[in-house]
Design a protein around this nucleic acid. Structure first.
Lengths: 232, 232
DNA sequence: CGACGCTTTGATTAAATTCAATTTAAGTGG
DNA sequence: CCACTTAAATTGAATTTAATCAAAGCGTCG
């Protein structure tokens, strides 16, 4: 586990470092431990591990999943740079979910022991914003899952993903899908056959262009209309 | 807005006061503002309001909801004593959801300005636990919503609600349902007709006894089997 | 008592799941 | 580099389920 500086981090404006000046930035850097690169399929943490840290994605992408009592696996989320991971361990000190890399990825480790220091950086605002974002995404997803039509759920997910890409300074039309169709369908509460049909339908209608690792949005207007419900 | 003491609070062991001794308890009491009783239908806060506080439910019950772009209303959660409310305001300083009382209820106000003090009480552990619980419930609900069968979603909700009652020291079989069927169906991603049929089915099968404001669980085993997926 | 909102029940329609087969892509080793 | 093997994704047909449309009970409150 090597020390790592926040000064040259590409996701700096999205992370706890947002708005920090060099002296405070060094304080932050001293709290954070850079994780080594995590290869595709490797796990950042596992359900049941002692939750001693939270994580912020630095590059690549992760999926989080929970295993149910009956052995069923459920994909709870996909996580891109600047997003918080590992909050699930705060109830009883053990992670409830597992985080697996979808590509070669990396994440910064925020030891819980350093939280008070991180808190002081900007009066807790940065930390709260990150937690709030995490909670907001979960809530938005829950609303999306309540849509009865599969098309609406897929469209909602794509619109939401587009916003996250925009936040990263990338095009909101160019949506990376490093996850498998099976994972995505699972996350959206439908079978992979159903997801495949929806994507084919939207593709045929000219709304998107779907390929294995990327979905391009050709008509954001119609996609938003299909999603309908997402705020602003 | 009156001052209120934590010493004689019934939900004290579930709140930030958990494990605090009298001297520290007074520090906590000084941070917290007791909300006046909120009558059925009144709102604790509204979407768009400046988010200057979080809340912990003290008595009664609340529902939270978001209004979508197309005017659709979605019920994001139901909240019982000891549960955190109002975290949605942490991204941009304004609440994204509204909280409405389902019965005559009350909630303690945690001004954000006091969070650093609250944090110091027990090294942030109590606060993190409350946030973690909030996030955990959201995640559990999202998993539940992904079940294709309506019966499984209803059963999952009831099992989860039973656990929350148990946490309050009440029977896990006796489930209060102060919300309307419409609200519950909305929350569970189904039509009210569908919910009504599911409840009737479970009632006929002897698994539950459903009445307007309360659902009694007669067979926790079969209910858990229907829910299937919830961890432990 | 009667009006109103909420809930339940019934019949029909539409949609997603399931089961099954095919196509495409990816990874392996000669 | 190409053939081979295996996994992933798509497409098709039948079945099941929930949504929709419509009507009838309940319970509450003026």
């Amino acid at each position: 586990m090597e020390r790592y500086s926040c000064h040259d981090c590409p996701t700096r404006p999205l992370c706890l470092a947002a708005g920090l000046e060099p002296p405070m930035l060094s304080v932050l850097s001293d709290c954070i431990l850079a994780g080594r690169a995590v290869r595709r399929g490797e796990r950042l943490y596992r359900a049941g591990d002692a939750a001693v840290s939270c994580f912020v994605v630095r590059s690549g992408a992760f999926k989080t999943m929970v295993e149910s009592g009956d052995g069923t696996l459920h994909v709870t989320g996909f996580h891109f740079p600047g997003e918080l991971l590992g909050l699930s361990g705060q109830v009883d000190g053990r992670y409830r979910d597992s985080a697996q890399a979808l590509d070669t990825s990396s994440a910064c480790r925020l030891p819980l022991a350093e939280l008070p220091t991180l808190w002081r950086l900007r009066g807790g605002a940065s930390l709260l914003r990150l937690v709030g974002l995490c909670e907001h995404q979960g809530a938005e997803h829950a609303v999306n899952l309540c849509r009865p039509a599969a098309d609406a759920r897929v469209a909602g997910f794509l619109v939401s993903l587009g916003r996250r890409m925009k936040r990263l300074g990338r095009s909101e039309r160019c949506l990376p899908t490093p996850m498998s169709r099976t994972d995505l369908a699972n996350h959206l509460g439908m079978t992979l056959e159903c997801l495949s049909r929806v994507l084919a339908r939207l593709d045929r209608a000219g709304v998107i262009s779907a390929s294995r690792n990327q979905i391009t949005c050709n008509d954001t207007g119609r996609l938003a209309a299909l999603a309908g419900h997402l705020d602003h």
